[in-house]
């Protein structure tokens, strides 16, 4: 076991995968010599050579398009989109190509690629370095969508994603890279080295895609969250004293519906938290499924706590970010409801 930050865990996952399988290649903007703007690929070019880890032109559609072609050849590309906000030029390649190649060719061709992208805000990145576009991927059949919340999961899930036979969108909450940020921006973040989930095996292991994890068992209310919001929800439960059961989805597509349903049937209450905007966000899907499967167990209207339906602002970042105070208010609201 080693102590790793989330960046180190992601890097270790690629390192382990490249070491085990010559067909794994890593490329993207600034990922080669420099090792990526967040340093996720640092050292990989030196270790595996520049034909297996290299810099790409600033052209996301080209990065995805070439990755799809490489996958058709038989490689397993793991590409980086520098910020999730930069994936839009590649959206056509992701949605109409990568996601459908298996289906439209009846398995004649497949697309085992991983698209890593730092997601979410909290770093004063403004509207083009802070977005959480996961719902734009969960709406696309043929994709898998993962959002890890800690180094241990990030490594195990990324290795699983690289080994998966289908395209996987891997969204890394950038505010979690250095520690379990719980929304208290006024306080320094605890480093991962002081957190249980910063303890990461150095070798190969996988975490199954599609399995959620209960981070805090509780009886009063179910909180469904993923990524940074898992830590915010834990803080909110702590600070309000409400005995919330916090579910870390880890994988949004496929979704671990059983874990959610089981929990809500126990608590009778449900709060869904995400950083992405409210309208047509992934929370809408969760709430709809809970209504369908747990209606007669519900004791209060469900509540969503999300980013506002505005672009991600710069100076007002902490008024936009759904922090522990807002989540705490939602917990109280469903307890009173």
């Amino acid at each position: 076991m080693a102590r790793m930050t989330m960046i180190e865990a992601v890097r270790s996952a690629m390192d382990v995968s490249m070491g085990r399988d010559d067909n794994v290649v890593v490329f993207g903007e600034d990922v080669g010599y420099f090792g990526g703007v967040f340093r996720a690929t640092q050292g990989l070019q030196a270790k595996y050579g520049k034909t297996r880890c290299f810099d790409a032109p600033i052209n996301e559609s080209g990065i995805l398009g070439t990755a799809i072609g490489m996958a058709a050849y038989g490689l397993k590309p793991c590409v980086e989109i520098q910020f999730a906000d930069y994936m839009y030029p590649a959206y056509d390649q992701i949605t109409q190509e990568a996601a459908r190649i298996r289906y439209r060719s009846n398995g004649d061709f497949t697309c085992p690629i991983v698209v890593r992208m730092p997601t979410g805000g909290g770093i004063f990145g403004g509207q083009t370095h802070s977005q959480s576009p996961e719902a734009l991927f969960t709406h696309v059949c043929g994709l898998k969508v993962i959002v890890p919340s800690n180094p241990y999961d990030a490594k195990g899930l990324l290795i699983a994603a690289i080994e998966d036979p289908d395209p996987v969108m891997f969204l890394e909450p950038k505010r979690l890279y250095n520690g379990p940020f719980d929304g208290h921006h006024e306080k320094p973040v605890t480093p991962w080295s002081k957190h249980d989930l910063g303890e990461v095996p150095e070798g190969h292991y996988t975490i199954p895609i599609g399995k959620a994890e209960i981070r805090r068992p509780g009886d009063a209310v179910t909180v469904v969250a993923y990524g940074t919001m898992v830590h915010v929800a834990l803080a909110a439960a702590e600070e309000t004293g409400i005995d919330a059961e916090v579910i870390d989805l880890r994988s949004l597509l496929p979704l671990d519906l059983d874990t959610i349903v089981q929990s809500v049937k126990k608590t009778g209450r449900c709060v869904v938290v995400h950083e992405a905007t409210l309208t047509s966000g992934f929370g809408g899907e969760v709430v709809s499924l809970v209504q369908e499967h747990c209606f007669y167990h519900l004791e209060a209207p469900m509540v969503r706590v999300t980013g506002w339906d505005t672009p991600y602002p710069h100076a007002q970042e902490w008024d936009y970010f759904p922090g522990p105070a807002r989540v705490g208010r939602a917990l109280k609201e469903v307890m009173e409801g």
Binding site: S61, G65, T66, Y73, L75, E97
Partner: peptide, 12 residues
């Protein structure tokens, strides 16, 4: 652009 990626893979 996918064709270019396939060709790159062959070269890799």
């Amino acid at each position: 652009v996918q064709a270019v990626g396939w060709a790159m893979a062959s070269a890799i």
